[in-house]
């Protein structure tokens, strides 16, 4: 029992110091094969919306499928309409620096029920890492859509370094890293992308900076608060990219300018 606790402690210390085991662990658990519509969502026909769902590895494929469908349905409901409340506070007094971001989101249960009653599966993919599904709402007949073959991640897209500019669209980027579960990582990256988009629309920014100087010292204090409460309609996760070398997940969210 004692040995076990010491071993755990040793691993924890090595991981704290940023050594390699963390990366090996995350690479083993992250995804490598995907479908093309997971990397880049295709344009849906007029009057139709697409959404993507995914699940991790399950022994029972039907459960994996159901979990992926449930996530895709929730994503669709969020896509249609979502209320986002964001606030970040940063306090710094020269010695201490505190950062406290809060994220709140809510979507309508009635919209989710509407979608549940009228959706269709466009495509799905089962890989060694998990299950991927593409849904359409409202339910459509057979779409002229190429059923994609599994692929590996392409090269780094331009939107990671520079946010796209458009007269019609607003974008937001979500980034997360070092997750042991790729499912959790994508979920969070998608949510962060949506919140990032909200910030690019409207944000209230308040701050107080004080600088106190005397003959010997300079003390800088800062209180910063930024917040918004916004309802987004038709905000879609249009692209995703995984940096396998650095274990970083990126999501791009897009919404029409209102």
């Amino acid at each position: 029992m004692k040995r076990k606790s010491i071993v755990i402690f040793t691993i924890a210390v090595i991981q704290l110091c940023g050594a390699f085991p963390n990366r090996i662990l995350s690479e083993a658990l992250s995804q490598t094969v995907i479908s093309s519509w997971f990397e880049q969502l295709p344009e849906a026909p007029a009057g139709t919306m697409f959404s993507v769902g995914y699940s991790g590895k399950y022994q029972d494929v039907t459960i994996a499928e159901q979990v992926a469908i449930n996530l895709a349905l929730k994503n669709m409901a969020k896509q249609k309409q979502i209320q986002l409340i964001f606030e970040v506070e940063e306090l710094a007094d020269g010695k201490l620096r505190l950062l406290n971001p809060t994220f709140e989101q809510s979507y309508e249960e009635s919209i989710l029920i509407q979608i549940k009653n009228n959706f269709s599966i466009v495509d799905s993919l089962l890989t060694e890492d998990g299950y991927f599904i593409l849904l359409a709402y409202p339910s459509t007949g057979k779409l002229s859509f190429d059923s994609t073959k599994p692929k590996v991640w392409g090269s780094q897209p331009e939107w990671i370094r520079e946010l796209p500019t458009s007269k019609d669209w607003i974008y937001g980027v979500g980034i997360v890293a070092r997750y042991s579960s790729w499912v959790r990582a994508w979920k969070d990256a998608d949510e962060y992308a949506r919140f990032d988009l909200g910030k690019n629309i409207e944000i209230e920014a308040e701050s107080i900076h004080t600088v106190q100087r005397d003959d010997r010292f300079t003390i800088e204090s800062k209180i910063l608060r930024q917040s918004y409460d916004i309802t987004l309609r038709n905000s879609v996760i249009v692209e995703g990219w995984y940096d396998a070398k650095r274990d970083i997940y990126y999501s791009l969210c897009r919404s029409a300018k209102q």
Binding site: R161, L163, N200, A205, I208, T210, I248
Partner: peptide, 27 residues
Amino acid sequence: EFTSSVSKQVANTVLRGCRIAKREMKT
């Protein structure tokens, strides 16, 4: 002789359309 200065900046505004155009992440 002792000199002390304090400067205080207060900002409060609503930013509409303020976007993060570029971003880089280094380790």
